[in-house]
């Protein structure tokens, strides 16, 4: 009889233990508050334009505007469209050409519609003392949608007057800081 009682007691004790097991003082609704907010630094474009690039090699006439285009296919991907909170472009021009330049960045969609533009002026420099011009473009809020509708960027560099017989280089380095939230 004692054995039965002991058995009964231990079973009940163990069962109580199992059924009393619980998860408390926790709030799983907090999962909704989890936000990953990494900040990603990524190189963008770079170039080296010589003064002679602003002269047509065949005719000798000045080319006041040179243009090039590159696709940046990741920009209009669904990941950036949904998770990009802010983007900060940083352009660093080093100019040793004794001319100032106007540089236009025109973002185009797949259908070649312009979705976002920005421009800056690069100060003139000289071969002996190149001048650095920095330009920061901050994109946030509703502009994000415009920016992330684009999948290519057209870069146009315009010199106001002829560059025949001048020397020097215009160098660009650039990067983008992507502030993500997801």
């Amino acid at each position: 009889m004692i054995k039965i009682n002991l058995k009964f007691f231990i079973f009940v004790a163990l069962c109580c233990l199992f059924f009393s097991a619980c998860v408390k003082d926790t709030d799983f609704d907090q999962a909704d508050d989890i936000v990953l907010s990494p900040v990603v630094e990524l190189d963008l474009i770079y170039f080296n334009l010589r003064a002679s690039d602003f002269v047509d090699t065949v005719t000798g006439n000045p080319r006041l505007t040179v243009t090039d285009t590159t696709e940046i296919e990741f920009l209009d991907g669904s990941f950036l469209q949904e998770n990009l909170a802010r983007a900060e472009f940083y352009f660093k021009f080093t100019n040793s050409i004794p001319r100032s330049f106007e540089v236009d960045f025109q973002f185009l969609s797949e259908a070649n519609d312009t979705t976002y533009t920005t421009q800056t002026v690069v100060n003139e420099g000289s071969v002996s003392s190149p001048v650095i011009t920095e330009f920061i473009e901050n994109v946030e809020g509703e502009q994000i949608l415009q920016l992330t509708s684009a999948d290519k960027v057209v870069v146009s560099v315009t010199v106001p007057s002829s560059t025949v017989n001048v020397s020097g280089e215009l160098n660009l380095k650039s990067k983008t800081t992507y502030f993500l939230e997801y």
Partner: peptide
């Protein structure tokens, strides 16, 4: 090593495409 995309600014005739840098 990734440095980004280098633009060459090739002289182009009308309608001519530049290099497919991204691809």
């Amino acid at each position: 090593t990734l440095d980004g995309i280098e633009l060459i600014f090739p002289p182009l005739s009308a309608g001519e495409n530049t290099f497919p840098y991204y691809n």
